[in-house]
Computed example of a mutant assay.
Amino acid sequence: MVETIYGCKWSLTVYQLLASEINRPGEMVRSVEGLTTKVLNQCLRKNVEFGILERISYNEVPPRVEYKVTELGTKFMEVLDELEKLQSEIDNKYNKRVN
């Protein structure tokens, strides 16, 4: 699961958008250059399947869909943050040795 989600370069971007309270797919596509509706939908679908995001569909005309982070998703993102911190530490130690 981690490899699948982390391997999708757009998942981390989606998490950042959700943290910025951008939770509607159309708004997400408009907010990120290079992100297409098709790729976003695939990314969102995977995250929903893994239980990281929840899809909320409103019975309105026109239809409205929003996404929010689940409790599991919050824990998952905390783990990703820790991995990024660890990678930074590793990079800093490596760069000190090289220089």
Rank of each mutant, 00 (worst) to 15 (best):
D91K: 09
S11V: 05
S20R: 12
R97H: 14
V32T: 04
R24N: 12
T13Q: 07
C8T: 14
V32F: 05
S11C: 06
E78Y: 11
D81A: 10
V2M: 13
V39L: 12
G51W: 01
E60A: 15
V61L: 15
E78N: 08
G7C: 02
K75D: 12
M28A: 02
G26S: 02
I90L: 12
L83M: 08
Y94Q: 11
N92R: 13
E78I: 13
R24I: 09
F50M: 07
V39Y: 04
L80P: 02
N99K: 08
V48T: 08
G73R: 00
E21Y: 11
P62T: 01
N95C: 05
K93N: 08
V14L: 03
L18C: 07
Y15Q: 06
L18Q: 04
I22M: 01
E60C: 15
E33I: 14
N59H: 07
V14W: 01
E27P: 06
K96W: 13
Y94I: 15
K68Y: 10
P25H: 04
R64N: 14
E71R: 11
E3Y: 12
I52G: 05
M1I: 07
K75F: 10
R55D: 03
E27F: 09
R30G: 11
R45D: 08
C43D: 03
V98I: 14
V14M: 02
E89M: 09
L35H: 07
Y67N: 05
L12T: 07
F76V: 08
G34Y: 04
E71G: 13
I22R: 00
L18N: 00
E89L: 15
F50V: 14
Y94M: 14
Q16C: 09
K96H: 09
E49R: 08
K9R: 14
V65H: 03
L18S: 03
L86S: 09
V65K: 00
L17W: 02
L35D: 03
S20Q: 15
N41I: 05
L44I: 02
F76N: 01
N59I: 12
N59L: 10
R97T: 13
S20G: 15
S88G: 12
L44T: 00
S88K: 15
E21F: 11
F50T: 09
V65E: 00
L40V: 05
V69I: 11
L18W: 02
L83E: 02
Q87V: 13
L40R: 03
I5H: 00
M77H: 01
L53V: 03
V2P: 11
Q87K: 15
N23Q: 08
K96S: 11
N23V: 09
R64H: 10
L72R: 09
S88C: 06
N41S: 08
V69Q: 05
E33M: 10
N59C: 06
V39Q: 13
E84F: 10
V61W: 11
F76A: 03
L12D: 11
V69K: 03
T4R: 15
S11D: 00
V61S: 13
I90K: 06
S11A: 10
N99A: 11
E60I: 13
V14N: 01
E21Q: 08
M1G: 10
E71V: 15
K75V: 13
L18I: 06
K85W: 09
R97G: 11
T37H: 12
G73H: 01
R45C: 06
V14F: 03
V79S: 06
W10I: 05
E82W: 07
E89P: 06
L35P: 04
R97C: 12
